[in-house]
């Protein structure tokens, strides 16, 4: 049996030669994740074949399943991504979030903030938290909420200057150099996925002088270079509506969105929904798929597995 997910099999491994298997696992995961994150500009070149992992020897009373072959979903998605970028037609980008696997660690929120150098008050992918039940019969549910990149986006037609539009690949783009900062799109988004850059900084009102280096780095959103600066005439994206871009600048360089690579629960998937071979295609054709506020007719491009 071949599964798309790395984790279920981990359970198989743990419990035998614990230390060994964990090390093998970590090495593997770490190499993938860090290759995606740290190497920055260099896409991970995944081989054409799923990488086979040597499973540690099993004790005689181990699981009676046949030899398992598994692959980290990141590798699968990386291959899907390369195929989508090279196929010659416009891909249909979608994101899938498995709410059952989300542990509410907020790593995606943070990695997104790091990737896009987000200032305070600007957030693209908060993890919505809701308490279910009352103590002691209590649990939490988590719902990461990026921009839905709606196919029928209510935020687009409202823009008085046409500074935001739907791209052919499905991403709803903002031109930071055209946006006048009226915030009409903020009130029009049913998912509250847009935030306004008030020109605030993390080091503001803290002791010391000047800003931290990370506050002065440019952002590469939408494939452009922008250096924030507040002032009478602020430098965009200060004074603009901002939102998740599905990490368009990374996709264009063959990298998965940052939130996908950093999701420790492997709960976030990204890919081309027009390719039946892709992982996301298979995921969104399951019966347990839903989208948020379906009744509004916004046709979100972000699917949730429940």
């Amino acid at each position: 049996m071949k599964t798309a997910f790395g984790f279920p099999n981990l359970a198989v491994e743990v419990g035998m030669s614990e230390v060994e298997s964990r090390r093998a696992f970590l090495e593997k995961v770490a190499s993938t994740v860090f290759a995606g994150m740290v190497l920055g500009g260099q896409p991970v070149k995944a081989g054409a074949e799923p990488a086979k992992v040597e499973l540690p020897p099993r004790p005689p009373d181990g699981p009676i399943l046949p030899e398992l072959e598994y692959e980290d979903v990141l590798l699968r998605m990386q291959r899907d991504l390369e195929r989508a970028l090279n196929k010659g037609t416009t891909p249909k980008w979608v994101m899938v979030i498995d709410t059952r696997k989300c542990v509410g660690c907020h790593a995606c929120t943070i990695s997104c903030a790091v990737e896009n150098k987000l200032p305070p008050g600007v957030v693209y992918r908060p993890v919505v938290e809701e308490q279910v039940g009352v103590y002691p019969q209590v649990t939490w549910k988590f719902l990461p909420r990026p921009c839905m990149q709606c196919d029928n986006p209510p935020c687009v037609p409202v823009c008085p200057v046409g500074a935001t539009w739907k791209r052919e690949d499905g991403i709803v783009e903002i031109d930071y150099d055209a946006c006048i900062g009226c915030r009409y799109c903020l009130v029009s988004c049913p998912y509250q996925a847009r935030t306004f850059d008030f020109g605030e900084n993390w080091t503001q009102n803290t002791p010391g002088q000047g800003q931290m280096p990370y506050e002065e780095l440019p952002t590469f959103e939408w494939g452009e270079v922008h250096v924030r600066k507040e002032g009478v005439i602020p430098n965009s994206p200060v004074g603009n509506a901002r939102k998740c871009s599905f990490c368009l600048h990374r996709i264009e360089h063959g990298l998965l969105p940052q939130c996908v690579t950093t999701c420790i629960g492997r709960a976030t998937f990204f890919g081309d929904a027009s390719d039946p071979e892709s992982l996301v295609f298979q995921l969104i054709h399951q019966p347990n798929v839903m989208r948020l506020k379906e009744e509004l007719g916004t046709e979100p491009r972000v699917y949730y597995l429940v």
Partner: peptide
């Protein structure tokens, strides 16, 4: 969205 207020602490959110 219910629960959005718990998602991220900031005085603008």
């Amino acid at each position: 969205l219910e629960g959005l207020m718990n998602a991220y602490r900031d005085h603008r959110l």
